[in-house]
Design a binder for these strands. Structure first.
Length: 790
DNA sequence: AGCACGCCGACT
DNA sequence: GTCGGCGTGCTC
């Protein structure tokens, strides 16, 4: 944090007129011979440094990688998220441009040959990163270092490598080729063909491969042509384009009245110089996507570009497919599943202005599009729009910042808007657009709530109520499909000894281990720790150990018994971990190779399968009693979304929700599909408890492998806050241990602050971020508008 | 992050 | 008198 500011360097003569704002440079920094990478943020500082300047060592770029908009945005981002400016700059670049520093160990003096052979393997240098985990080698190196026999050099490596292809350019004029044609020997057929081809292509640049194909000539002929000066060979950047899958057919749809109203409002806004925010609230299946596509068309028609964010590409393949179908090669896709190379190439295409539409996940909000006319956030309430590690930005807020900069329109879409957004729409801060009806004219599927406490229990407990089982059977007979949601993976959620009450916990985290039968192990869902299934209690050696709680694995086993004829696809983190499995499973289900799709919340969103007429929620209570003020909002959202998967085509759908809390208002209102009533109820609770959207929240957290160290720091922070002059309505909760006090062998303590308007608090937090040093393993972080409190 | 400097205790 | 561990402050 002490270095969180710009430093001034001299431009050496060799770089005169080459250094530009937005370029990356290599500079010396500190007393050693350390080289670090930096960004040029200004070439004409207001307050020049009064002292000896060091020279810039080298440029890493031939052209800026960040434009002035990005530099201004990064400044604002650093301020509002209490982050380092430089991490904000890096957050805007594709991974490939984030330099890796190599620490090379070099010999300074004669070292015994044996040492050189052992340590350096005959090489003249050694990358520290390769050996830093080997204590023996490190010890040896420390000794050599003390003896002055080795030194460490820092090297910055540029990882950006564009894939290059050779291309040819005709270098002469039409008439020149005419003359040459007349002059070549009659039997030189290949040369003649080349000349004719070049004559036709004057002024073009053609990849060599393509030219060979078109002419049927060999590479040798082109080389000859180059030698004789008929053509020039150039290197052309080639872009790795992801998702080369054939484009879907674009379906032209006629808008219904509601859609038309929304599109008209958006069209008008896009053409103005304002930067309004629209909230499009449309029930599941109401045709929000078509509204998005029309708005993008408008932006393009007025020579502007469009940026569209989706929560997660793998969850919304159908959405991405439709954008590509409509706009074809004019679209760049940016998401986390791309390789670094693919991501870099897509980013370059955007940077160079080769595309006008960008679709991507959270970080795509930094796509270097110029002249943005429209920014869309689909499913705006999704938590994935908030980055959970530094810089902890909310993509929705970045969208609004960029919209102001570009005079662009922001469009937030959702069936269940976040309370924050809907509240703003209600007060007129945002413009509200609504799509209350499904496009297929079907009503939303009726939802039935089943009270699991009333279920008969003959023959042991079942996870299925009689009615849900009967309905599943009915769909099976009719050849229709069902979706079952159980928001818990694994087989059983915990193991307990009947004799002594011992619960098997993760050694690294304060959380019980989950039984996974498919991998024959006990797993921790927080750190990935895995161990064998115990045969007797580790505490009292009793054999009376039992497993409690139900996960997707167990339900799958139970279904196999209850409905042996049903073909089941289970979809959770465990079955989709491998690349491409997600798509594969969905495709199988889409081809009706299975009758039931059973899964965790990953199946709740965005899926559109016409044969699905039944949705069952096995346990609606799981998310309700978490210590998190957003628990109700998330449950309502999940239930609404998953219900929307039923009856999307011409057949009627039906939803069954099983619960032990049938009277809970969240379930009651989800059943009625009454978002507005839910909003009103929840808003009253939030107002009373002083939570968003009435108050802002910020979470401060200290963590360390030693509990006392973390506790001490948070205590000091707490004292500091108490002595600063906080606004009278600012509330400080804590310090307390985090609800899950320990994960990955670190203890966490937190303070949650709630405030309305408190400039002093903001200043104090900024100072805290500056002053609170991370020492050793101790960490301190400030998370504005946190999404989770666990 | 990494380095130098200075303080302090332990040892020669 | 000297060495090394550790806390603090600085890096254009």
């Amino acid at each position: 944090m002490q270095t969180n500011r710009p430093y001034t360097y001299r431009v050496p003569e060799s770089l005169t007129n080459q250094v530009m704002v937005g370029m990356r440079v290599i500079v010396p920094f500190g007393r050693g011979k350390r080289e670090v990478q930096g960004f040029v943020v200004d070439t004409n500082p207001e307050q020049p440094f009064d002292g000896d300047l060091k020279d810039i060592i080298a440029l890493m770029d031939l052209e800026p990688v960040l434009n002035p908009e990005m530099i201004a945005l990064s400044r604002w981002l650093a301020k509002t998220t209490y982050s380092f400016w430089i991490s904000c700059l890096y957050a805007m670049l594709p991974n490939l441009l984030k330099a890796k520093t190599h620490r090379l160990v070099r010999l300074t003096d004669d070292v015994a040959e044996a040492e050189q052979l052992n340590l350096f393997d005959g090489q003249d240098s050694l990358d520290l990163a390769d050996v830093q985990n080997d204590p023996d080698i490190m010890h040896e190196l420390v000794k050599l270092r003390r003896a002055g026999k080795i030194r460490i050099e820092y090297q910055v490596e540029d990882r950006a490598r564009a894939k290059m292809v050779v291309a040819i350019q005709p270098s002469l004029q039409f008439e020149d080729y005419e003359e040459l044609l007349a002059a070549v020997p009659k039997n030189a057929k290949a040369q003649k063909r080349l000349l004719v081809y070049l004559q036709q292509q004057t002024g073009q640049t053609i990849p060599l491969k393509l030219a060979q194909q078109q002419t049927g000539l060999s590479p040798a002929t082109f080389t000859l042509g180059e030698k004789r000066g008929w053509l020039k060979k150039v290197k052309l950047e080639q872009y790795r384009t992801p998702m080369t899958k054939s484009l879907e057919r674009d379906q032209q749809v006629t808008l219904n009245t509601d859609q038309q109203v929304a599109v008209d409002a958006l069209n008008q806004a896009i053409k103005t110089d304002q930067s309004p925010v629209f909230l499009l609230k449309g029930v599941t299946g109401s045709g929000k996507t078509e509204v998005y596509l029309r708005a993008i068309e408008t932006a393009l028609a007025s020579h502007q570009t469009a940026l569209m964010l989706v929560p997660e590409i793998s969850l919304t393949p159908q959405m991405v497919g439709r954008v590509r179908a409509r706009f074809g090669k004019n679209v760049a896709i940016l998401h986390s599943a791309l390789s670094n190379g693919e991501r870099y190439d897509e980013w370059r295409r955007i940077q160079m202005g080769l595309v006008d539409v960008v679709v991507g996940t959270r970080s795509a909000i930094f796509a270097p599009l110029k002249k943005i006319g429209l920014i869309i956030l689909d499913e705006e309430h999704e938590v994935s729009y908030k980055q959970e590690d530094a810089p902890r930005y909310q993509a929705r807020e970045v969208a609004k910042w960029r919209a102001k900069y570009h005079h662009a329109t922001v469009l937030l879409g959702s069936a269940t808007p976040s309370l924050e957004s809907y509240a703003r729409a209600k007060t007129g801060n945002y413009h509200l657009l609504t799509l209350p009806h499904r496009v297929n004219q079907q009503p939303l599927p009726p939802i039935q709530i089943v009270d699991m406490r009333q279920e008969p229990r003959q023959g042991g407990e079942s996870n299925f109520s009689q009615i849900l089982l009967a309905r599943l059977n009915d769909r099976l007979q009719k050849g229709e499909q069902s979706i079952l949601l159980l928001n818990r993976r694994g087989f059983s959620s915990f193991m307990m000894c009947r004799d002594c009450g011992f619960v098997l916990k993760c050694p690294n985290c304060d959380i019980s281990l989950t039984l996974h039968l498919s991998s024959h192990s006990m797993k921790c869902h927080y750190c990935g720790h895995e161990e064998a299934i115990p045969r007797f209690c580790p505490n009292c050696h009793s054999q009376e150990i039992r497993y409690y709680g139900t996960g997707t694995e167990k339900v799958q086993a139970e279904l196999n018994k209850l409905l042996p004829a049903a073909r089941i696809i289970r979809m959770d983190v465990d079955t989709t971990r491998r690349k491409g499995m997600h798509e594969k499973l969905l495709q199988q289900f889409g081809n009706h190779q299975a009758d039931i799709l059973l899964g965790t919340q990953m199946i709740a969103k965005g899926l559109d399968f016409p044969q699905v007429t039944l949705v069952g929620v096995l346990n609606a209570d799981t998310g309700l009693d978490l210590p998190d003020f957003r628990a109700s909002e998330r449950t309502f959202d999940l239930l609404s979304q998953v219900s929307g998967r039923a009856g999307r085509a011409d057949k009627n759908g039906e939803v069954i929700i099983q619960t032990y809390n049938p009277d809970n208002y969240v379930l009651q209102l989800a059943q009625k599909n009454d978002y507005d009533a839910f909003f009103a109820t929840e808003m009253r609770i939030r107002q009373q408890a002083q939570y968003p959207p009435y108050f802002y929240t910020v979470r401060l957290m200290a963590s360390d492998p030693q509990e006392v160290v973390a506790a001490k720091l948070i205590q000091a922070v707490s004292e500091r806050l108490k002595t600063s002059q906080l606004a009278t309505d600012t509330v400080m909760l804590g310090p307390t241990p985090r609800p899950i006090a320990r994960t990955q062998n670190r203890y966490y303590y937190q303070i949650v602050l709630k405030y309305r308007h408190d400039p002093t608090l903001i200043t104090t937090l900024t100072q805290l971020a500056h002053e609170t040093q991370a020492k050793g393993n101790l960490r301190f972080m400030i998370d504005p508008d946190p999404q989770y409190f666990m």
